[in-house]
Simulated assay, not measured.
Amino acid sequence: MAGQTVILVGESQRHFARSLIDQAPAGAVVNVRKAKRTVDQNAKMWAMLSDISRAAPEGRLWTTDTWKAAFMHALGHEIMWQPGLNGQPFPAGFRTSRLDKEQMADLITLIQEYGDRHGVEWTAPEVAA
């Protein structure tokens, strides 16, 4: 039995998932989790981080990765700083690829609120609206 991923959007998918469980051999593993962030959410986040990085609010000349780490930290996600090969620290640990849709929406909202407060000009039309 090959691995199966079922996205539970309706009753037919729930029925199919139950049938997979009924057919599963002893010792099989079932993992139910919230859906991961979407590709569109990820693209929007990086566009927003680029806009903020270019705007340099409060004189912060940060890279998009540094901004991402700052916003993740502001939401309470663990960021670990590791010593780099050149002695300069870099962020490691919690990644946005591990966020579910709701967590990613919270991150995007925080980025938008911060950017709006600091006069960031959004390049993505849906952000500017």
Rank of each mutant, 00 (worst) to 15 (best):
Ser12Tyr: 06
Gln13Leu: 00
His15Gln: 14
His15Glu: 13
Phe16Ser: 11
Arg18His: 12
Ser19Gly: 08
Ser19Pro: 04
Ile21Glu: 13
Asp22Asn: 13
Gln23Cys: 11
Ala24Thr: 12
Ala24Trp: 13
Gly27Leu: 10
Gly27Gln: 12
Gly27Phe: 05
Ala28Met: 12
Ala28Tyr: 15
Ala28Glu: 12
Asn31Gly: 09
Val32Ile: 14
Arg33Lys: 11
Lys34Thr: 05
Ala35Tyr: 10
Lys36Asp: 10
Thr38Lys: 08
Thr38Asn: 07
Val39Leu: 14
Asp40Thr: 08
Asp40Leu: 09
Gln41Leu: 05
Lys44His: 06
Met45Tyr: 01
Met45Trp: 00
Ser50Glu: 11
Asp51Met: 12
Ser53Tyr: 01
Arg54Leu: 11
Arg54Trp: 07
Arg54Asp: 13
Pro57Tyr: 03
Gly59Tyr: 00
Gly59Gln: 04
Arg60Pro: 06
Asp65Pro: 07
Trp67Met: 07
Trp67His: 05
Lys68Cys: 04
Lys68Arg: 07
Phe71Lys: 02
Met72Glu: 02
Met72Asp: 00
Met72Gly: 00
His73Thr: 08
His73Val: 04
Ala74Lys: 09
Leu75Pro: 03
Gly76Phe: 01
His77Lys: 04
His77Leu: 00
His77Phe: 09
His77Pro: 02
Glu78Gln: 07
Ile79Phe: 03
Trp81Asp: 03
Gln82Thr: 11
Pro83Cys: 00
Leu85Lys: 10
